Computed example of a mutant assay.
Amino acid sequence: MPPGSTLPRRALGRQLRKLRERNGFTATAASRIAETSPQTYGRLEDGRITKVTDMLLNTLANAYKATDTERRLLLALAQEIRTSSTNGGGWWRAYADSLATNFDHYLSLEEAANWVTSWQTTLVPGLLQTREYRRAITWATSPDTPSKEVDRMLDMAAKRQSILDREGFRFEALLAEGVLHYQVGNPEIMAAQIQTLLEKCEQAEIRFVPFRAKNPCGLIASPFVLFSFPPLLTSKLQEPPVAYVEGLAGDLYLERRTEVSMYSQEAEKIRHVALSRSASKNLMLRALKEWQA
């Protein structure tokens, strides 16, 4: 396999599959539009190595009635593939363009995954946040955002949470106890958020690392998310996992086996010091009473 990241190829494949299915095309019909074999087109959607040209993507974008934003995303990913193949590096992407605003790549990974593990030390993960908790974070980090834009973001966040009800999807939230005590918004917002966490225990595995854990595993590591995926649809090959680390200057997506392994091992250490699910519920109940006092 030539050097370079597989992430942009995989992201491109997911975008093409989404557009194709939205317009009711079969993969065979799409291969005819692309003037290639069904096997080659299948490799394209699976994110496996195949030649990708802007002409090919524009042809497919026309057939799929892609919006200007969707077309730009396809072409940007193709450019990322070429750049990554040339420099052989991992995929650093500080999202300063539309990808940043829409959080598209992260959401595509989340949508494709069948198991997501999130380690957070200060905030509740997005999939478990209440609307008002998310609103308080948005106002705190982006106070100049227009109210209508904030509401649009909150609507998108609520829609995103429906993935918790998807059959076969597993969400594991490993959280430091501080998440229950750092005030976001006001006490009423915190109480409602903790109550929601208690309710979400039916849809997600929520476990806390207490302040008095014997080993402060995880506190050394920054918050991170691990994405694990089912086999690819066309080739049935196992899609490798991805680690995501959010940074102030940009987001880091890691896919090299050695790098992802470090985060997988860290997650396993955190699991060993985290409370059981029942003990975590008791911890949340105590915190809820404190916020309601």
Rank of each mutant, 00 (worst) to 15 (best):
L73A: 08
L73K: 01
L75K: 05
A76N: 06
L77K: 02
A78H: 01
E80Q: 10
T86K: 01
G90W: 11
G90N: 07
R93A: 12
R93H: 14
R93K: 15
A94E: 08
A96G: 12
L99G: 12
N102V: 15
F103H: 15
H105M: 15
Y106R: 12
L107V: 15
L107E: 10
L109M: 08
A113G: 04
W115P: 06
T117I: 11
S118C: 04
P125Q: 06
R131W: 09
R131T: 07
Y133A: 09
R135A: 14
A136I: 04
I137E: 11
I137W: 03
A140R: 13
S142E: 10
T145C: 13
K148N: 14
D151S: 06
R152V: 10
M153Y: 12
M153E: 02
D155N: 13
A157W: 04
A158C: 12
A158T: 09
S162H: 07
D165R: 12
E167A: 15
G168W: 06
R170F: 09
E172R: 09
L174P: 07
L174F: 09
A176N: 05
A176G: 02
E177F: 03
V179T: 00
Q183T: 09
G185N: 08
N186G: 06
I189F: 06
A191Q: 09
Q193C: 11
I194N: 08
Q195C: 10
